[in-house]
Measured scan of single mutants.
Amino acid sequence: MAAGGDHGSPDSYRSPLASRYASPEMCFVFSDRYKFRTWRQLWLWLAEAEQTLGLPITDEQIQEMKSNLENIDFKMAAEEEKRLRHDVMAHVHTFGHCCPKAAGIIHLGATSCYVGDNTDLIILRNALDLLLPKLARVISRLADFAKERASLPTLGFTHFQPAQLTTVGKRCCLWIQDLCMDLQNLKRVRDDLRFRGVKGTTGTQASFLQLFEGDDHKVEQLDKMVTEKAGFKRAFIITGQTYTRKVDIEVLSVLASLGASVHKICTDIRLLANLKEMEEPFEKQQIGSSAMPYKRNPMRSERCCSLARHLMTLVMDPLQTASVQWFERTLDDSANRRICLAEAFLTADTILNTLQNISEGLVVYPKVIERRIRQELPFMATENIIMAMVKAGGSRQDCHEKIRVLSQQAASVVKQEGGDNDLIERIQVDAYFSPIHSQLDHLLDPSSFTGRASQQVQRFLEEEVYPLLKPYESVMKVKAELCL
């Protein structure tokens, strides 16, 4: 049975990233139509530049190519590739079939990587351009969430054990800070992308030097003109047959890092959902379990974690691919890159769409948070109580021993009897502590235990987050809708 299948058929496997999760716009960027249309555009740009620099290419040939950029006979191309065992030459023939007058000058002087690699770089750039505003929107939604809850005390956790208090907004800023680093890295790697350009079979530009009869300047002009037509500021000066596969490492490393950030955020949300302090959106008709109707599973956060793990592992592909590119190139890269580049971007696209949807509907339960604080705060307040007693004339050592005994009794009630923490009640009825009984409410005010959390939130948002989001103001209103 021949390899390949009808990918629109229910009898043929289709990647869930495309069929179930990723956005239509990201799927289109990695589609065959987008790819092969870009090949034709690159052939047109090459012909236009070659004509401008004096090669015998007519206006009629150029116009014929322009008129057929979208006229792609995919069936013919597939048949040609089956016959020739070469995808680029299959599309040269297919393009030439609908451009008979231009057929002889299509791909003039070029090698397969002229269309293959340059198209990949265009796709990487455009895919990054799709991700950047999506990530900015996630940051914006979380920034709104953090600002609104900047002063809401909550129990902090280290080692997932109760620690000092923080605020809900401050905790959210930990998430935002990681995503801001990801946004900066995505922008950097996007701006650092260079075009492969017009380089020939081993990167020496020998074929173009021959076409222009040894004119170095025209060869350099050709490279520059096509690079500018493709919208790049610069091209690699040095290439082998391909652009260095280190570029793929750079791009997928940034995406993998984004995956790590999203995994951490969504894990926190899942843990908070278990504590009943916070939940992701839950639709009115949504079913959490087929057997347990009360369940409210954090399905979206779980999906993000599941896909983020996949995204983090994909960076190993370009690392290994770059390491086995012998001399000017081997074909070890080809099949692998067809999979890992598309999957990385479709996965990143999915987790950003999902995280935006989550961040637009996060639900906080202040009463649950308050109750958990009441359970733990008495123990945390013991040092403040000791200091207040010393100020009232008591002995630190005597007070410490009193607190120690009462704390152990209260802990026994919590752990052995399943009761509430009654340390404060014990202190309130103990005559030894009568000098500070009137101060206990103040000493137990949760806001006095959150330090500068709310001020940190305000400063972080104003100095770091809002300036970073400013270039994306025009796209901030787009909502994230999930079908599944």
Results as ranks from 00 to 15, higher is better:
Ser323Met: 10
Ala49Thr: 04
Arg296Val: 12
Thr111Asn: 05
Ala381Phe: 12
Arg125Asn: 06
Ser447Leu: 14
Leu352Tyr: 07
Phe145Leu: 05
Val88Gln: 05
Ile385Tyr: 12
Thr321Pro: 04
Ala256Cys: 06
Phe145Asp: 14
Gly116Gln: 12
Lys187Glu: 08
Lys391Trp: 06
Glu280Tyr: 07
Pro133Ser: 14
Arg371Phe: 02
Ile105Cys: 11
Thr239Asp: 00
Asp178Trp: 00
Gln177Thr: 13
Asp192Tyr: 09
Arg190Pro: 02
Gln356Met: 08
Ala3Phe: 12
Pro446Gly: 05
Gln408Val: 08
Leu222Cys: 09
Thr119Asn: 06
Met89Cys: 06
Arg190Cys: 09
Cys98Arg: 11
Phe327Thr: 11
Arg404Tyr: 13
Arg149Gln: 12
Gln320Cys: 11
Ala78Asp: 13
Asp192Val: 09
Ala388Met: 05
Arg40Ser: 00
Glu81Trp: 00
Glu464Lys: 08
Ile123Gly: 08
Glu328Pro: 01
Thr347Ile: 10
Phe433Tyr: 08
Val414Tyr: 03
Thr227Cys: 13
Ser434Val: 07
Ile139Glu: 04
Thr450Arg: 04
Gln428Tyr: 14
Leu314Val: 08
Lys66Leu: 10
Trp45Ser: 10
Pro446Leu: 05
Leu346Pro: 04
Leu319His: 07
Ser67Gln: 09
Cys483Ala: 15
Ser474Lys: 15
Ala348Leu: 08
Arg85Cys: 04
Met312Lys: 05
Gly8Phe: 15
Thr321Trp: 05
Arg196Thr: 00
Leu258Gly: 03
Lys391Ala: 15
Gln210Phe: 03
Leu307Glu: 03
Ile72Glu: 09
Gly169His: 02
Leu155Thr: 00
Gln286Phe: 06
Gln375Glu: 10
Asp216Leu: 07
Lys134Trp: 08
Ile358Gly: 04
Trp45Asn: 13
Arg337Val: 02
Gly394Phe: 10
Pro378Glu: 02
Leu423Tyr: 08
Phe433Glu: 03
Thr242Gly: 06
Glu228Pro: 01
Leu222His: 03
Glu148His: 12
Leu130Phe: 10
Leu352Ile: 13
Gln320Ser: 08
Cys172Pro: 04
Tyr114Ala: 00
Glu463Cys: 07
Val413Ser: 11
Lys402Trp: 00
Val324Thr: 14
Cys483His: 10
Asp11Pro: 14
Phe74Pro: 13
Cys340Leu: 09
His442Arg: 12
Gln41Asn: 12
Val315Thr: 09
Asp215Ile: 06
Asn118Phe: 00
Ala103Gln: 11
Tyr243Cys: 15
Ala388Lys: 04
Lys415Asp: 07
Glu148Leu: 11
Ile238Asn: 02
Ser12Arg: 14
Ala230Ser: 14
Gln241Ala: 02
Thr321Asp: 03
Lys224Thr: 10
Ala18Cys: 12
Pro24His: 08
Asn126Thr: 15
